[in-house]
């Protein structure tokens, strides 16, 4: 199947269990929020989903490709927005996009066309020649999302992408990524902020390395997601 599938992931940092039998699947074209407080294991899971390191046990498949057995095919179908900015502040906005495109095998006119189209969609075409360091936080994030889509992945992973942004930028980016999911992209959105989750979203609550809840956000929330989230994580605190 397409989408994202995580099966029986276990991982320890020394004697501490970081992820404990984590399993879930996100169908194609679905926005899935991975909600968890700080230290829940979200970043560890993201490290594994992006193959920065491999889990001690378990399996990850991206758009039907096993990450351990077909890493390149899986990574080619994945777009990633990391928690910390991965833009090169010394390079121009356009050069940042072209660099990423090249890492995914795109060059020449094709890369140029896609980069300019991405900037056009963001209304940033006139800033193509500016250094990335001159962009504000919101623009940087939107640009990173556009960059992660340059190679047209099937699955988009975002690790707390709204950290450090003001409320307006946060709302705009959350809405933008929901739109992308509605257009057919599989999205995994890690966050610790409940207001970024919509009732129709798929929701996975991760706490201390374990999946506490998995289902439609509205069903899990039962009215108030914040209270439910606090109750769920508080029970285990």
């Amino acid at each position: 199947m397409g989408g994202l599938r995580v099966e029986g992931i276990n991982h320890d940092w020394g004697t501490r269990r970081a992820l404990d039998n984590v399993s879930f699947a996100v169908e194609p074209g679905r926005f899935c929020a991975l909600l968890g407080p700080n230290g829940a294991g979200k970043s560890t899971l993201f490290g594994m989903l992006t193959r920065l390191f491999t889990p001690h046990s378990g399996r990850i498949a991206v758009a039907g490709h096993d990450l351990a057995r077909e890493p390149r095919a899986a990574l080619a179908r994945m777009g990633v927005v990391f928690q910390t900015s991965t833009l090169d502040p010394d390079l121009t906005v356009k050069r940042n996009l072209l660099y990423f495109a090249a890492l995914h095998g795109l060059s020449g006119r094709e890369a140029e066309t896609r980069a300019m189209a991405a900037l056009d969609r963001l209304g940033m075409a006139e800033r193509a020649g500016e250094k990335a360091s001159k962009l504000n936080g919101g623009h940087r994030r939107r640009m990173e999302i556009a960059r992660a889509l340059l190679h047209r992945p099937k699955v988009l992973l975002l690790d707390e992408p709204t950290v450090g942004l003001d409320a307006a930028s946060r709302a705009a980016i959350t809405a933008h990524v929901h739109d992308l999911a509605s257009q057919g992209l599989t999205v995994l959105w890690a966050t610790h902020l409940v207001d970024e989750v919509r009732a129709k979203d798929r929701l996975i609550i991760l706490h201390r390395g374990q999946v506490l809840a998995d289902g439609e956000a509205g069903d899990i929330a039962g009215g108030d997601l914040t209270s439910r989230f606090l109750a769920l994580t508080g029970e285990r605190a």
Binding site: L52, D88, F100
Partner: peptide
């Protein structure tokens, strides 16, 4: 973080 970008290239 920019090393991550490099290492996640296919």
């Amino acid at each position: 973080g920019s090393m991550r970008l490099l290492l996640t290239a296919p």
